[in-house]
Design a binder for these strands. Structure first.
Lengths: 215, 215
DNA sequence: TCGCGCCTCCCCCTCACGGGTGACGCGGCT
DNA sequence: AGCCGCGTCACCCGTGAGGGGGAGGCGCGA
């Protein structure tokens, strides 16, 4: 197992190195103190796993992760962080990280985490998993507080790509009524047309990918 | 810690019960062999955690999970499954499950999992986490193979709610060109209007919530 | 060399959409 | 009683959007 360690604090690097090299056959083949150096080192050493700190001077760990993953290397990135900032988790996932753990986890768990990401699987620490589930699956379905019940019905229909006429027949009302609701939705959401309304619906979590499985 | 066990196999229930009751202060306060009974038992016993099997005769575990979560109880649902079917994971997350683990995990991990979900956090086993990350963060950004480069550019603009004119100025071409690209996109995606195109873009993962952070 | 896909641009035509305005019945709140 | 939000429906009007054509340039492979 070939491992790279990226952290701006030399002491943290030493600590991690000591933990990881206690495993038979594990080798720390590269170290870096900032994102740019990390990208270069990974390109050079082609490790199996990179332990990547988030907060670093210069290029941060998330940007470095993005570059490493987009370079198409087989190297897996395990992001380490001191604080449980949800936004880091989402950014890290989008950057292509294979895992996200807290620095303070016990050595055995850290070793297990490295083993898991090296095998192609992924893991997040429990609080992040909760955040991800909430964001992914959503708190059920958000309820656009400013919209009335009926308006939410219409917005759901909009988000399924229905025309005003289709919505009207589906909701058993006249097209005029639908238009009136749509107009109200547009002004309340502060958008220009139905397309933007649908985008807001997706971005806000009011509807989620998977809701319109058909089409 | 008050726990409910839901599984159609009495032997599995016995096994789980034995494992969980080996912990001090942990009590299995309800059991059920199908989804409907599970919902009723949880309503009656109000346990802290439910271990929920997916495959069951009658109402399955995912539907039962949905009902339990939507009922607004504080009970956390930990879904157990024999096979690593990704689709189950997504359904479980959307149903509101707090965790998703394989039945075959060692007892210590199962106990740890129960402890985690009871504390309000969540966990998934590593293969599921990988699947979730891939689906959530996506493989970067999918590339609608049937669309040409330029058409993908236009679709991205559509997915940000831009009008034809805005797209034209943004891409430094004429409105006519944009209209022609849009027409091509609509026929290729087999949809009727730009709104449906945007929906397809979201549903297919071509764009993801967060891509249009503005608006 | 020819064809073909892609990108670009143009014209005409139709219509669903969206803005503006007004109206009615209903229920709840004061 | 009065008011107001909600849901329902209606009409007019302007315009953006989409369908159906056609056309030229460019690069690439047959």
């Amino acid at each position: 197992m070939r491992i790279a360690i990226v952290d701006d604090d030399p002491l943290v690097r030493m600590g991690l190195k000591a933990i990881l090299q206690s495993e038979d056959g594990w080798d720390v083949v590269a170290e870096a103190g900032d994102g740019a150096a990390a990208v270069a080192e990974v390109r050079r050493a082609a490790p199996d796993v990179v332990l990547m700190d988030v907060r670093m001077p210069g290029m941060d760990g998330l940007e470095a992760t993005r570059l490493i993953v987009q370079a198409g290397s087989a190297t897996k990135v395990l992001v380490l962080t001191t604080f449980e900032v949800d936004e880091y988790v989402f950014e890290a996932m989008r950057a292509g990280a294979a895992g996200f753990v807290l620095k303070r986890v016990p050595p055995t768990e850290l070793i297990e985490a490295v083993r898991i990401v090296a095998s192609g699987e992924s893991l997040l620490f429990p609080a992040s998993t909760r955040a991800v589930i909430e964001r992914f699956a959503g708190p059920g379905q958000l309820d656009m507080p400013e919209l009335t019940e009926r308006e939410q019905d219409v917005l759901r229909e909009l988000a399924r790509g229905r025309s005003n006429l289709e919505i009207a027949t589906g909701l058993f009302v006249s097209v005029e009524t639908v238009k009136s609701h749509v107009a109200s939705i547009l002004t309340k959401l502060g958008v220009r047309d139905r397309t933007q309304a649908v985008i807001v619906a997706y971005e806000s979590g009011f509807v989620r990918p998977g809701d319109a499985a058909d089409l």
